[in-house]
């Protein structure tokens, strides 16, 4: 009741005809309000229920496999789902997070720079079509990026990566791994993911930067700000929360990306142990589940994959929750 703003007085019929305060009898408006409120609450609840059900379903399927797991689920990097079940998600988690973070670290600065250029520096005849083009790129299916990365760019990237690992190979992250070529590593996957999520982050950042109120910008200019100082004082603070949510959206895509990763990333070299190197192969949650999906038999081994899927599910949830917290914390200052 209180959610629709109706009070008891609205319900109480007045004796002796129309109450002078009863308005024009906007019963349809009231009813409309109520239906709308009901529908939105209902839809919200439905979403929550579905999400919870999905979680329960995954957990129910995963638990039997987890009970017989011979390895430590969270810290083991092995994945054996044959006659004995010994599986852990550490390797998958690392590959997923590492590729996504590389993607984000590369994509966000470029996206912000492009968005700033288009909104603050480019002349209108350039910024309009360029913005349209970026919106188009955001809609390109990921398999296209997989093809482009795996078959066109991969070969060109290999020598660069060899160069990097010659110089920085003493850092575990950049150590050379025998048997893995430059175009099939976690790092390269991260780069392709960066290109993949760049358009969406750019498009959303551009939109938010474009909405910077003129009053904020003029406030900065009037203090004697140069263009770049104006951007730092007015545009970036205004757009920060939007850029963060755009980045999280991009991160969500990168974390869950399946087909492009599968096409590019090679597995760990046969028999070789897992390493911290970004120049190694591996598998992400999504690519592992998808590439082994043909072997699912519905038994305990499938449960192992579902357990992995559950972790991915939680991971994306956590990422979104963190983004929410960051955005809400900033809100206190913008209202």
């Amino acid at each position: 009741m209180s959610s629709t703003g109706a009070s008891v007085a609205d319900e109480t019929p007045s004796p002796g005809g129309r109450d002078p305060l009863s308005g024009d009898g906007a019963a349809t408006g009231r009813l409309g309000d109520r239906i709308f409120a009901g529908a939105t609450v209902g839809a919200g609840l439905l979403v929550v229920v579905v999400v919870v059900l999905v979680g329960i379903f995954l957990l129910a399927q995963a638990l039997p496999a987890l009970r017989v797991d011979q390895a430590s689920f969270f810290t083991s990097t092995q994945w054996h789902t044959g006659s004995t079940l010994a599986f852990g998600i550490a390797g998958l988690l690392w590959a997923t997070v590492a590729t996504s973070i590389v993607a984000l670290l590369v994509a966000v600065p470029f996206s912000v720079a492009i968005a700033l250029f288009l909104t603050q520096y480019a002349p209108r005849w350039l910024s309009r079509p360029a913005a349209g083009l970026i919106d188009l790129l955001a809609a390109v299916p990921s398999i296209v990026y997989g093809l482009w990365g795996g078959y066109i760019v991969a070969g060109k990237w290999a020598p660069i990566q060899d160069g990097v690992s010659t110089v920085l190979g003493w850092i575990p992250l950049f150590a050379k791994v025998d048997g893995i070529t430059g175009g099939s590593t976690l790092f390269f996957v991260g780069l392709v993911l960066a290109v993949m999520i760049l358009p969406i982050i750019t498009a959303l950042s551009r939109e938010i930067f474009d909405q910077t109120p003129t009053t904020h910008k003029e406030g900065a200019y009037a203090l004697g700000a140069t263009k770049w100082e104006m951007i730092r004082t007015a545009v970036l603070p205004f757009g920060k929360a939007g850029v963060i949510s755009a980045s999280m959206l991009g991160l969500g895509r990168a974390l869950g990306e399946t087909i492009a990763v599968m096409m590019i990333l090679s597995g760990l070299p046969q028999g070789a142990p897992w390493t911290w190197s970004l120049f190694n192969g591996g598998a992400t949650f999504a690519s592992k589940i998808a590439s082994d999906a043909s072997e699912f038999s519905g038994g305990l081994s499938t449960g192992a994959y579902i357990a992995a899927g559950l972790v991915l599910f939680v991971l994306t949830f956590v990422v979104n929750a963190i983004a929410r917290v960051i955005i809400d914390r900033r809100k206190a200052f913008t209202e």
Binding site: H216, E218, G219, A220, F238, T334
Partner: peptide
């Protein structure tokens, strides 16, 4: 310069 609508930097 001071503007018509107060425009402190909100953040």
């Amino acid at each position: 310069m001071v503007f018509q609508r107060p425009n402190p930097f909100p953040t």
